[in-house]
Simulated assay, not measured.
Amino acid sequence: MTASEQTWVAPQSVIFDMDGLLIDSESLAMKALNKAGEEMGYDTPFSFCQAMIGVPIDRCRSLVAERFGEDFPLDLYFATSDKHFTSLVEAGHLQLKAGVENLLGALEEQGISKAVATSSSRRKADHHLELIGIRERFSAIITRDDVQRGKPDPDPFLRAAEALQTPPERCLVLEDSHNGVRAAHAAGMRVIMVPDLLGPTDEMLEKVFMVADDLNVVAELIRSSVPETAPATKQ
């Protein structure tokens, strides 16, 4: 765990990424993308699939086209990947990440509002959050369908802050992906990185408040926080 030289101030709102942060879905997505490539006779190693973590679907399609050429059957590839991903989810492999319940409880104890900002679709986000039983614990869910520009642009986080009626500088973002960290930083928000499949780079360390091993670390930080208070007025 590392921390920057920024001073910690308790947030008014916390905005969560979803895949790889709240739910252990990135590893399932990597397996699905890899298996789809194998079925179609293409080499799609995990090192290549990792480049699509935290990336909007249009950019994912561009990455695949750049690797395999314009004749590559993109629609079939992603449809096949979705089929394998759905099979893994239906088999019960979708799980909460460590510390989720602990952190949600800590935020609710202190009355800190919560939102999700994800690169997933509305359909997938609602389904997955409902499936693991935490959908109703968030005041807002912002998906790729709600913004014109996804991560690494700041739009998803700014839209979430607007929904929570919280200034960006009073929001804390929790992210596992590099593009998510970039988006939160561009939005003017404090960000804690909780790595999943991608570790922190020098660029990430410059942008984050800290790197946490899991969400239990963030829960401890929240519970130890003293809420920011307005200056006393003179009588």
Results as ranks from 00 to 15, higher is better:
161 A>Q: 04
59 R>I: 15
59 R>T: 15
2 T>A: 02
126 D>K: 10
231 P>K: 08
17 D>R: 04
162 E>A: 10
223 R>P: 05
58 D>P: 09
122 R>C: 06
64 V>W: 01
122 R>E: 14
30 M>G: 08
143 T>A: 05
134 I>K: 04
50 Q>N: 13
17 D>A: 09
112 I>S: 01
3 A>N: 03
195 P>S: 08
221 L>N: 03
69 G>T: 07
193 M>C: 09
204 M>F: 02
200 P>K: 07
220 E>Q: 15
83 K>Y: 03
108 E>K: 01
60 C>L: 06
124 K>N: 14
125 A>C: 08
83 K>R: 15
82 D>W: 00
222 I>K: 00
158 L>H: 05
152 P>R: 03
161 A>R: 10
174 L>I: 13
128 H>C: 12
142 I>F: 00
14 V>S: 10
135 R>G: 02
43 D>L: 09
19 D>E: 08
49 C>T: 14
114 K>H: 02
228 E>K: 09
117 A>Q: 09
110 Q>L: 08
206 E>Q: 15
172 L>T: 02
78 F>K: 07
35 K>Y: 12
69 G>R: 04
73 P>N: 05
168 P>I: 00
68 F>N: 09
60 C>K: 14
190 R>E: 11
88 L>E: 14
90 E>A: 09
102 N>Y: 00
137 R>M: 03
113 S>Y: 01
178 H>G: 10
21 L>H: 03
109 E>A: 04
50 Q>T: 12
174 L>D: 04
71 D>W: 01
111 G>M: 00
165 Q>N: 14
170 R>S: 13
103 L>A: 02
4 S>W: 03
114 K>C: 08
212 A>W: 05
30 M>P: 01
141 I>T: 12
38 E>M: 12
26 E>D: 06
139 S>K: 11
48 F>I: 12
23 I>V: 15
2 T>D: 06
156 P>R: 03
184 A>P: 11
164 L>V: 02
138 F>N: 08
62 S>A: 13
61 R>K: 15
1 M>N: 13
227 P>H: 01
38 E>C: 05
2 T>E: 07
182 R>H: 10
111 G>V: 00
96 L>V: 05
38 E>N: 13
107 L>C: 09
48 F>V: 12
168 P>R: 03
176 D>T: 10
107 L>S: 09
136 E>I: 00
89 V>C: 10
205 L>C: 11
128 H>F: 11
112 I>T: 06
132 I>R: 07
231 P>A: 11
41 G>D: 07
194 V>L: 04
8 W>R: 05
173 V>T: 07
99 G>E: 06
120 S>G: 15
80 T>F: 00
54 G>M: 10
79 A>Q: 14
35 K>V: 10
209 F>V: 06
107 L>D: 06
76 L>K: 14
31 K>A: 14
48 F>W: 09
79 A>Y: 02
129 L>E: 06
114 K>N: 00
174 L>P: 06
172 L>E: 03
193 M>V: 08
221 L>H: 02
99 G>K: 02
45 P>Q: 07
95 Q>E: 12
82 D>R: 13
144 R>K: 13
81 S>G: 11
198 L>H: 11
184 A>Q: 08
140 A>I: 04
26 E>F: 05
124 K>V: 13
100 V>P: 10
126 D>R: 12
209 F>E: 11
28 L>K: 13
18 M>H: 03
76 L>T: 15
181 V>Y: 04
101 E>H: 10
216 N>W: 01
126 D>A: 11
192 I>M: 12
208 V>M: 01
194 V>K: 03
28 L>D: 08
234 K>A: 14
